[in-house]
């Protein structure tokens, strides 16, 4: 029977209260939301906090607000809620693509977007999605809050800009016109971590050329977006050849490792193939946006 080592438990009632509790209980306190990363780690003694601060009652973290120029998603928003949201699917179909293949429906009832980004697992899907969508992360500190780009937020595997005494409170997705986005993952079986995955977003100019683009890879050893691959698209008219060129550059930028999920060559092949597919689907969606 796997049970965590002993700890003390307290429920936060607000963001301010959570920050007070983090300060009071010091470096061995951990915040719990869905708990689907932290509790398994605690069972295995990979994490052994003295205090658990439960933020599940903090209603202010649990909002989804559509502003004219951005969608604001509270950190406590569950995967299942993102998948159920029509607004999310209309503005950012890449989020629905990814959420359909994150864990399984029961796990998605508990896991949260803030928890996923905070855990920063190298095979985690939403980090790539947030990279691709130029999301900004709101981090609350005792001194106030700051808003950081993904480039500053995500520092590498299991490491983010959110310090021990801070709390991720919101993720902001900028809304821009003529946008399309997509995500595709190859997994060994339902609910598994990615063998490899790719995401892309395209923002089209009125003349039908690509105004802006981002490409991101998951579980392929690349931190942050595939900048050079996206750069060849900008200012160009989309074509299969152009997408193939970008896909090859994305694969070249990847540095997958061989593990039980497959050899390097296979994963690099997936990087190219999945990038090509998501670019095509993103273009399709930019041309035929979902009806509001």
């Amino acid at each position: 029977m796997q049970v965590p080592a002993p700890f003390d438990y307290v429920r936060a009632t607000s963001v301010a209260n959570a920050l007070e509790l983090l300060e009071r209980h010091g470096p061995e306190a951990r915040v719990i939301a869905g708990g689907h990363s932290l509790l398994p780690m605690m069972k295995l003694r990979l994490a052994r906090p003295d205090w658990i601060i439960d933020i599940n009652d903090v209603a202010e973290l649990h909002a989804l607000t559509e502003e004219p120029d951005e969608l604001r998603v509270g950190a406590l928003t569950r995967h299942a809620e993102l998948l159920d949201s029509d607004v999310v699917g209309r503005l950012f179909p890449i989020i629905h693509d990814a959420e359909r293949v994150i864990a399984d429906p029961v796990v998605r009832n508990r896991g949260t977007i803030g928890g996923s980004l905070g855990q920063a697992d190298p095979a985690e899907d939403l980090t790539t999605v947030c990279d691709v969508l130029h999301a900004r992360i709101v981090i609350a500190s005792p001194g106030g809050e700051r808003v950081v780009d993904m480039a500053d937020f995500h520092r590498g595997p299991y490491e983010t800009a959110c310090e021990q005494h801070e709390l991720i409170t919101e993720i902001r997705f900028p809304v821009r016109p003529r946008a399309g986005s997509a995500y595709e993952k190859v997994e060994r079986r339902v609910g598994d971590w990615a063998v490899a995955a790719a995401g892309a977003a395209l923002w089209m100019a009125e003349d039908g050329t690509v105004a802006d683009a981002t490409i991101g890879l998951t579980a392929l050893g690349l931190e942050g977006p595939a900048v050079e691959a996206a750069a060849v698209l900008i200012g160009e008219r989309p074509s299969e050849d152009l997408f193939a060129e970008a896909a090859d550059l994305a694969a070249a930028a990847s540095s997958p490792i061989e593990d039980q999920r497959g050899p390097v060559d296979y994963k690099r092949h997936l990087a190219a193939e999945l990038t090509r597919r998501v670019l095509g689907r993103a273009l399709d969606r930019a041309a035929h946006p979902a009806v509001a």
Binding site: Y9, I32, L39, N56, A80, V107, R110
Partner: peptide, 13 residues
Amino acid sequence: GEPVKSCTQLAAM
């Protein structure tokens, strides 16, 4: 009313 894996939730939660 929502399915949850009860091995991955504290009773306290």
